[in-house]
Design a protein around this nucleic acid. Structure first.
Length: 569
RNA sequence: UGUCCCGUGGUGUAAUGGUAGCACAGGAGAUUUUGGUUCUCUCGGUCUGGGUUCGAAUCCUAGCGGGACAACCA
């Protein structure tokens, strides 16, 4: 496997799964092999929680010199599957991981699974039940009361075999019969109360077409698929913990009478990722998309991998995040500030600095010649000398950020105000002499003088100023649209309120579109997902909607802003 | 009123019988032609009660708190 993109490499951090694997290795299990798998069901888009699992599984493979399979858990053709396969593959690759060989499908193993089902029937460990779903559910009992046995539980092997074949041959309608494991209806673990192994679904499958009309359930599929592939460590989330005895039971049954295999997969559970100020369940994410609350699965406010990508998150930042959140078994809610820290850390080192003014106000240098253009040298990235320098045009008329000027600034405000001096980065020190307001009281133009002795790079004035502003040339800058994103929800745990719908906590200001922005001319030929630091503002990336005629940038995350914190006080 | 899992600073996560550490967040300062970055300092924690031990975050036990489990979903 390989990291397909440069960027920060997370520092390795130990967790309990490493310890379990090392214990197995020491005991010589699985012939010393480590093979993991990432097993998505192709019924939706991947989100940041999946990214944690991907990084964990592929990371384990890398650490122990093993491999990681990508396997689609496609045992339920009623749930629309083929359209999601490609997006999942793309997302895994984009995160920087390469799976072992071809991608796998649980449906590749349907023949083998069927044979094993027959084996269980022959050994008296499975039976066909003719009851309805409702009847079976009613007999299942509850977590505190045992279930009761089905009246079909003690059919003969011959009858079970015959019925199962007829199920396979399409002689029954959906719901008429199921194959169940014969375990223990009184087990304290509900999953051991004669779980369903196969159900009838008359629907064609995205890979097997109409070959089958019976499909295996998750529990009868997952462990055996792991076994077939030689998976050694089957890592999943905590809600599958109660399935583990069943996972092992099915493995015991298929191995019955067989020689000891070299590898036997072992299920290990960890706590899924939760992020504050968002929702993570597929159901709620789908609702946001279907109700048009967001603009699709890749809306930059979504915690989906495709949304984060469009927002400007890099694979390296997400890998870093996955490393920093750690892996444990206790429930957790990660502060989204950690995710933001990770993208800032990555982009600080890599993003070229450019000037963009997203809320422009005109500034005129009254003592600067009308037609003069000075091409000022600017460092592309002070954190990375190899990114070199570029020239930016300095002219008499400029745009600066509206909030960099105040008519009556407090002492702590280091920016522009009447009579105040600031430096224009990569330009000159200027002094505000006057300003003009429109009838509605809005500042329209600011008039300054510049000091020719203070040119950046060869300042001979010895002047010191507290503030440095970014700017663009009024005549040379390009118009652009900028989309400012904020958290989608105003509540830390929008789905965590019993009596309130999560949508009640939507942030009305989660998207703010600015149409009158100006960016420096070097941004003329940007491509989708190119990332930049708009100096003093934040990290931005080029939206796929962007064209050379109409530039569109997404704000990934603002820069840390200690002034904003101060101003709030 | 069952079975299982989990309780370490605000949030995460280490320490696996021997000095409770790290990261993020918060606070203070230094540097800075980004109020960014960087650097320094700082705040703050083992759910509670018993027990075992020279010694317990760690082992045992009781309690408390949180979570999972009753789909022909995965």
């Amino acid at each position: 496997m390989s990291k397909t993109e440069e960027g920060a490499t997370p520092a390795p951090k130990s967790n309990f799964i490493h310890q379990e694997i090392e214990k197995d290795l020491k005991e010589g299990k699985n012939g010393g092999a480590v093979l993991t798998r990432f097993p998505p069901e192709p019924n939706g888009y991947l989100h940041i929680g999946h990214a944690k699992s991907i990084c964990l599984n592929f990371g384990l493979a890398e650490k122990y010199n093993g491999g990681c399979n990508l396997r689609f858990d496609d045992t339920n053709p009623t749930k629309e599957e083929v359209e999601y396969v490609e997006s999942i593959k793309q997302d895994v690759r984009w995160l920087g991981f390469e799976w072992e060989g071809q991608e796998k499908y649980a449906s590749d193993y349907f023949d083998q699974l069927f044979e094993w089902a027959v084996k269980l029937i022959k050994n008296g460990k499975a039976y066909v039940d003719d009851q309805s779903a409702e009847a079976i559910a009613a007999q299942k009992g509850t977590p505190t009361e045992p279930g009761v046995e089905s009246k079909y539980r003690n059919r003969s092997v011959e009858e079970n075999l015959d019925l199962f074949m007829r199920m396979k041959n399409g002689e029954f309608k959906e719901g008429e019969r199921v194959l169940r494991a014969r375990i223990d209806m009184a087990s304290p673990n509900m999953h051991m109360r004669d779980p369903i192994m196969y159900r009838i679904i008359h629907k064609s499958h995205h890979r097997t077409g109409d070959k089958w009309c019976i499909y295996p359930m998750y529990d009868f599929t997952h462990g055996q698929s792991d076994f077939i592939e030689g998976i050694t460590h089957s890592i999943c989330t905590l809600e599958f913990e109660v399935h583990r005895p069943l996972y092992n039971w099915f493995l015991d049954q298929i191995l019955e009478g067989e020689p000891e295999p070299e590898r036997r997969p072992r299920q290990i559970e960890f706590a899924r990722l939760n992020l504050n100020y968002t929702v993570m369940s597929k159901r709620r994410l789908l609702e946001l998309v279907q109700k048009g609350i967001v603009n699709g699965w890749d809306d930059p406010r979504m915690p989906t991998i495709s949304g984060l990508r469009r927002r400007g998150y890099t694979p390296a930042s997400i890998r870093m995040f996955a490393e920093r959140v750690g892996v444990a078994r206790r429930d957790n809610i990660i502060d989204v500030a950690l995710l933001e820290h990770c993208i800032r850390e990555d982009l600080n080192k890599r993003a070229p600095r450019v000037n963009a003014v997203i809320d422009p106000v005109k500034l005129v240098l009254t003592n600067y010649p009308e037609d003069k253009v000075e091409w000022m040298e600017a460092v592309n990235n002070p954190e990375d000398e190899s990114q070199g320098t570029r020239k930016i045009p300095f002219t008499r008329e400029l745009y600066i950020e509206r909030n960099d000027f105040m008519e009556n600034p407090p002492k702590k405000f280091f920016r522009l105000g009447p009579g105040r001096e600031v430096r224009l980065k990569n330009g000159y020190i200027i002094k505000c002499e006057d300003y003009k307001k429109s009838e509605n009281g809005e500042v329209e133009e600011i008039y300054c003088t510049y000091d020719p002795e203070t040119r950046s790079g060869n300042d001979t004035s010895g002047k010191k100023v507290k503030g440095t502003l970014h700017w663009v040339s009024a005549s040379h800058s390009l118009p652009a649209e900028v989309r400012l994103y904020d958290r989608l929800f105003m509540d830390e745990d929008p789905a965590g309120h019993k009596d309130k719908d999560f949508k009640e906590f939507l942030n009305p200001d989660s998207l703010n579109i600015l149409n009158n922005c100006r960016v420096e001319p070097s941004l003329k030929d940007v491509k989708a997902l190119d990332f930049f630091q708009f100096q003093r503002l934040g990290y931005f990336c080029v939206d796929p909607d962007s064209t050379p005629e109409h530039l569109v940038f997404n704000r990934t995350v603002p820069l840390r802003d200690t002034w904003a914190k101060l101003a709030k006080k």
